[in-house]
Design a protein around this nucleic acid. Structure first.
Lengths: 361, 361
DNA sequence: ATGGATTTGTACGTATGTATC
DNA sequence: TGATACATACGTACAAATCCA
């Protein structure tokens, strides 16, 4: 530190970081600093000029010099109109309409989306989060990854909260950080689906749920709840629980085992429509017809699954609506307005993948 | 520009951008600039100081001031591992697998995608381009918007070329700027589709093409070419040409007019599968059955259209493969390796939306 | 509400240090 | 080594915005 202006600059910088001056607090005037450091006005101005460039302080002509909110100069200084969207998947299944919904609202206001998918992998989630934090995004819309497991990236979420970056979660929440969220009524809706199967005469139901994410765990709970409320012992049925990392073939094998039993279930409740279509395809290839031999329900009302034969009985997911609401909520957060979390009902969608077995012998 | 240092700064900045000083060329000394602008050394130093901060010049003590390589400081200084993707649509139709393909390659290398859709609108295209140029993205993957019309944003494309930002186009090209591209054999494939219809005994075919984009114009050309090669006068058939801004109902009305004629066409060749499914739905609602009363072909092999009944006869689009190739090509461009444009064949995909009318009375 | 004091912004002149040529 | 050119530093002056009595 052989040069004077650097000495002044570093001294002031450290004092700001150490909290000697609070945010928006007025710094000593140039004259005072000249006295304190015993240097000319040039030297002071050079030092504080650089501090201003580096966003530690701001200056108001005639007013004085003040401490910047350096903790979150996100979007304060930069005009980066960038919103990060992190989801488990990006271009498959129900995610395109969700992302499209977000984009339709935000692009209207001049924001661009930067998207990342985690493929249900915490390492990739961390990578995406770090990427976006580097870019000083104006906000984050996140679908938690493996939301039923402990999240090793909570440190980053805490940081996001500390920096007060506008953040919205969908499909699941992290209780530890309490961001506004957009959720489906997974448990209630799955209970309705199972009750619907009950009403069609099905009482031995195979449930297949991905339980490393909150949605899957809740849906499984919904199925169990339906059994409890109906007073039917859950042991009459089968439950297959799997992780997103499990191989699909392993799951199909376990399904096969279940159906080798002559007294096999008459219906299957699947984690979601993607799994349901996979299961149906697998069963049909083995001569087990849906809904003749077994009824199947999914979840999410996946567009493609409605055009297939049979069309799926499922629970609705608001997809595009959820995306648009997320976009609107983000705009409010950015403007400092209060927002309220939304929970969407997931009403039953009746398709042709289920049939009544009541009148049968 | 009431302040002197801004006048000096802007004058020098423009001279650098206009090429008055080449890269690494020495600028006049501070003394010379003092004489030229008739200002003090303070003013000159303040002006060039800001130019240095903004990376237009660099200074060497005792050596002089020199022009920075401002053209290539994209990605050179900033570590922004960001790739911009601009397409006409984002979350609909065949675009999800394309974008997913791009992402699968680039996210592997630590890049994030920033996406924008133009909705076939040059104003929105300009907005997206400006946004991304501001962010100093490392590369651009663009589907040209309304590619058969003159593009008012060519100035930006020229700028992208001048700045040597790695850029790839797909689905269409701008002959004026010559970026590497990923194209389909639209004309050849449409000719094959029409020839296939010929082979099934159809000779009066209604062609419906969106002709404000290159793909549509080429596909229309393919149909005309097929007629020419078969020696059949094109006047036997009908052509509906429309713009992306046209209302779909207007097009359906024109289709209705055509089919009010008793001697109406026996087949329809559609711009793409999206249009084809719309047309089929419209016809079926009026009791015109496909393929019983009329055969229909589309283009792009849209996944959803294959699951519908009837399944579409169409030409294949590589979708995910194209996305992955675009990603790989981008990595090569960033590494300064040479790349070659790719043209994909679009082989015929036979579905149940077409039938032979040869053996009929 | 006004005017004078305060505080930052722009600008010039000068001197000296230090790296380059 | 001397001349050149950029870097640091001080003093001064006035302009422009703000603050406060």
């Amino acid at each position: 530190m052989e040069v004077k202006y650097e000495l002044v600059k570093e001294t002031l910088r450290k004092e700001i970081l150490n909290g000697k001056y609070q945010i928006n607090e007025k710094l000593p005037t140039e004259s005072k600093l000249m006295e304190r450091f015993n240097v000319s006005r040039y030297t002071i101005r050079r030092a504080v000029g650089e501090l201003e460039n580096e966003h530690y302080i701001y200056r108001i002509q005639g007013g004085g010099m003040f401490v910047q909110d350096w903790q979150r100069n996100w979007s304060a200084d930069d005009t980066n109109k960038l919103i990060g969207v992190i989801s488990t998947h990006m271009a498959d299944y129900i995610f395109p309409p969700i992302i499209s919904g977000i984009d339709s609202i935000l692009s209207e206001k001049g924001y661009s989306l930067i998207v990342g998918n985690t493929l249900n992998n915490h390492t990739r989630e961390r990578q995406s989060l770090l990427n976006m934090l580097d870019l000083k995004i104006a906000g984050l819309i996140i679908e938690p990854t493996q939301s039923a497991l402990p999240n090793p990236n909570l440190d980053l979420y805490q940081q996001i909260k500390d920096y007060q970056i506008p953040t919205i979660l969908f499909h699941a929440t992290y209780p530890e950080v309490d961001f506004p969220s957009l959720l489906g009524e997974d448990e209630v809706a799955e209970r309705n689906l199972v009750n619907y199967l009950f009403s069609l005469g099905h009482h031995r139901i195979l449930g297949i749920f991905q339980i490393d994410d909150r949605q899957g765990a809740d849906r499984e709970q919904g199925m169990i709840r339906a059994y409890q409320e109906a007073g039917i012992p859950v042991t009459d049925s089968e439950l297959i629980m799997y992780q997103s990392t499990d191989n699909i073939n392993a799951i199909l094998q376990r399904v096969d085992q279940v159906f080798q039993n002559a007294n096999h279930p008459t219906a299957i409740a699947c984690y979601n429509d993607h799994l349901a279509t996979t299961i149906i395809g697998h069963l049909q290839r083995q001569g087990i017809k849906v809904p003749r031999d077994v009824s199947v329900v999914g979840f999410d009302n996946y567009e493609l699954a409605q055009t297939l034969e049979p069309s799926l009985t499922t629970a609705n997911h608001p997809k595009r609506q959820l995306g648009e609401d997320a976009g609107k909520m983000m705009l409010k957060l950015i403007n400092g307005e209060p927002v309220e979390s939304i929970t969407y009902p997931a009403p039953l969608v009746k398709g042709t993948s289920t049939r009544s077995i009541k009148e049968e012998p």
